[in-house]
């Protein structure tokens, strides 16, 4: 996973198309228990030759069967459209959003999504509606946190059977290294900027529009221009002089293990970004040219997340 996928823009993680989902419905332990009780009721009815006893027992057996049919029908229209997760830092909770829609003409009740050891609360999806379920997992290691196979289950209508659909999407969360480290930002190469004391490229003075380029910060998009149907543009600002720092992994060879080094780099990326200093990232075999803005920060953090095999 060394290659940094450049497609990753924050909030736009890997999405897979909805596959056709088969519903499996099986009696759960309550269902078997109910069958046992019905068996005893049938024995009693036979022995006492009690016709209403027979009738009640057979009625409940029919209900038992139909409950499973209803359970099947309840899940039949449910599709998982996809799942995504926003990147997180190590130590945070990776929240996967699972997109569920109900393409049947009936509402689906009592659904719960589970993956791994995590289960959501019950929810329902009206006919033709969709639902976004959130499953959070602790992000413990840098790199990629894949979403375990997802199961949507429901005990509807009598809780005597469980209808399930499984979904094995390719969704995963990128886990950035934990930004930590006490080292200050490296010295800037530009003495003038250094003298200016990291003058902020604050979004201060509006300096016109230019066409959108991939990677531009969303904050800078000219929404009004879009609404006026003039296409996608970004706002440009005339700020102070952009300072520039070079963040190099090889400069950190002397501190701790590689994870600590990556943590320090992540810290620097965050600090530089907050300070508005243009920064480049040099990870020996990956070199990201200088830049600033959210998109640039994402690139850098992604590169850090995917750097080498995690120790």
């Amino acid at each position: 996973m060394a290659s940094a996928t450049a497609a990753g823009v924050r909030g736009r993680a890997e999405v897979s198309p909805p596959p056709r989902i088969a519903v499996r419905v099986l009696p759960n332990r309550y269902g078997w228990l109910m069958l046992l009780v019905l068996g005893v009721m049938l024995l009693g009815s036979i022995n006492y030759n009690n016709n209403l006893g027979y009738a009640l027992t057979f009625l409940l057996m029919g209900v038992w069967v139909m409950a499973h049919v209803h359970g099947y029908r309840n899940l039949r229209g449910i599709e998982v459209l996809g799942a995504r997760a926003t990147p997180v830092f190590v130590g945070e909770e990776a929240v996967f959003e699972v997109f569920v829609c109900n393409s049947s003409a009936r509402a689906s009740h009592g659904l719960a999504i589970s993956a791994g050891m995590v289960t959501t609360d019950m929810f329902e999806v009206a006919a033709g509606d969709s639902h976004t379920a959130r499953l959070s997992f602790p992000a413990q290691r840098r790199g990629v946190l894949p979403l375990p196979p997802v199961t949507i289950a429901s005990g509807f209508p009598l809780a005597i059977g469980t209808a399930r659909i499984g979904w094995r999407g390719e969704a995963s969360a990128t886990v950035y290294p934990h930004p930590a480290g006490a080292l200050p930002l490296p010295e800037t190469d530009d003495p003038a900027a250094a003298a200016a004391g990291y003058a902020l490229s604050g979004d201060t003075d509006f300096a016109g529009l230019r066409a959108y380029r991939t990677g531009d910060s969303l904050r800078q998009i000219a929404w009004k221009a879009l609404a006026r149907e003039r296409g996608l543009h970004v706002k440009r600002f005339a700020g102070g002089v952009a300072a520039q720092v070079e963040l190099r992994l090889r400069d950190l060879r002397f501190i701790g293990d590689p994870e600590t080094q990556l943590s320090q780099l992540a810290r620097w990326v965050m600090d530089a970004e907050r300070a508005g200093i243009s920064y480049s990232l040099d990870l020996d075999h990956v070199l990201l040219p200088a830049g600033v803005g959210e998109a640039h920060r994402e690139f850098c953090l992604q590169a850090l997340a995917h750097y080498g095999p995690p120790s």
Binding site: N51, Y54, A55, F58, L59, L60, M61, G62, V63, V65, M66, A67, V69, H70, P157, L158
Partner: peptide, 14 residues
Amino acid sequence: TLMLQAAPLMLIAF
């Protein structure tokens, strides 16, 4: 609804 749908099965079994 469940009971109504179960009724045909019940009648046959009965």
